[in-house]
Simulated scan of single mutants.
Amino acid sequence: MNREDRKKDRGKFNAEETVSRLYPFIVRVFDVYEIQNSGETLYFYGTPKVDAETLTGELWEPLQRFGFGCVLKYELGEYILQVSPEKKAKEKIWLNLVLFIATFFTTMVCGAWMFGVNLEEEPFQLFKGLSFTLAIMAVLGSHEMAHYAMARYHGMKASLPYFIPFPTFIGTMGAVIRYKGPVPSRKALFDVGVAGPLAGLFMSVAVTIIGLNLEMPAVEPLPGSMMFDLGMPPLFVFIQTLVGATGQNLHPVAFAGWVGMFVTLLNLLPAGQLDGGHILRAMMGKKAEKISFLMPRILFLTGIYVIYWLKEDGVIWIFWALLLWVFSAAGHPSPLHDKVELDKKRILLGIITFILGFLCFTLIPFKPIS
Results as ranks from 00 to 15, higher is better:
Lys8Val: 07
Ala15His: 03
Glu17Ile: 10
Ser20Tyr: 10
Leu22Ser: 08
Pro24Ser: 03
Val29Thr: 12
Ile35Arg: 00
Asn37Trp: 15
Leu42Arg: 05
Leu42Gln: 06
Tyr43Gly: 00
Gly46Phe: 02
Thr47Leu: 10
Thr47Ser: 10
Thr56His: 13
Gly57Cys: 09
Gly57Ile: 08
Phe66Val: 12
Phe66Gly: 07
Lys73Pro: 00
Gln82Met: 15
Lys88Glu: 15
Glu91Gly: 11
Glu91Leu: 09
Leu95Val: 10
Leu97Tyr: 12
Ile101Gln: 02
Thr103Ser: 12
Phe104Ile: 01
Thr107Trp: 11
Val109Glu: 12
Gly111Asn: 08
Ala112Ile: 12
Met114Trp: 09
Asn118Glu: 13
Leu119Tyr: 07
Glu120Asn: 08
Phe127Asp: 05
Thr133Phe: 03
Ala138Trp: 03
Ser142Cys: 12
Ser142Gln: 02
Met145Tyr: 15
Tyr148Met: 13
Met150Tyr: 08
Met150Pro: 02
Met156Pro: 11
Lys157Pro: 00
Ala158Pro: 01
Pro161Cys: 01
Tyr162Arg: 09
Phe166His: 11
Val176Tyr: 11
Ile177Asp: 04
Arg178Phe: 07
Ala188Asp: 01
Leu189Pro: 07
Phe190Thr: 02
Asp191Lys: 04
Asp191Thr: 06
Val192Met: 08
Leu198Gly: 06
Ala199Thr: 08
Ile209Gln: 05
Ile209Ser: 04
Ile209Tyr: 09
Gly211His: 08
Val219Gln: 06
Glu220Phe: 03
Glu220Ser: 13
Pro221Asp: 00
Leu230Asn: 01
Phe236Tyr: 15
Ile239Arg: 07
Thr241Pro: 03
Leu242Val: 06
Gly244Ser: 10
Thr246Val: 12
Gln248Ala: 15
Pro252Phe: 11
Phe255Ile: 05
Gly257Lys: 02
Trp258Pro: 02
Gly260Asn: 05
Thr264His: 12
Thr264Tyr: 08
Leu266Met: 14
Leu268Met: 15
Ala271Thr: 15
Gly276Asn: 03
Gly276Ala: 03
Ile279Gly: 00
Leu280Gly: 08
Met284Asp: 06
Glu289Met: 09
Lys290Ser: 14
Ile291Phe: 11
Ser292Lys: 00
Ser292Trp: 00
Ser292Asp: 00
Ser292Ala: 13
Leu301Glu: 02
Leu301Thr: 06
Ile304Thr: 13
Tyr305Ser: 09
Tyr305Val: 12
Val306Leu: 02
Ile307His: 01
Ile307Phe: 04
Ile307Val: 11
Trp309Ile: 10
Lys311Cys: 07
Glu312Cys: 03
Val315Asn: 05
Val315Arg: 10
Trp317His: 09
Phe319Lys: 04
Ala321Gly: 15
Leu324Asn: 09
Trp325Thr: 13
Val326Ile: 15
Ser328Ile: 02
Ala330Ser: 15
Ala330Arg: 15
Ser334Pro: 03
Pro335Trp: 07
Leu336Gly: 05
Leu336Trp: 03
Asp338Arg: 11
Lys344Ser: 13
Ile352Lys: 01
Ile355Ala: 14
Ile355Arg: 01
Ile355Asn: 02
Phe358Ile: 14
Phe358Trp: 14
Leu359Gln: 06
Leu359Asn: 07
Cys360Gly: 07
Cys360Asp: 06
Leu363Gly: 04
Leu363Tyr: 04
Ser370Asp: 14
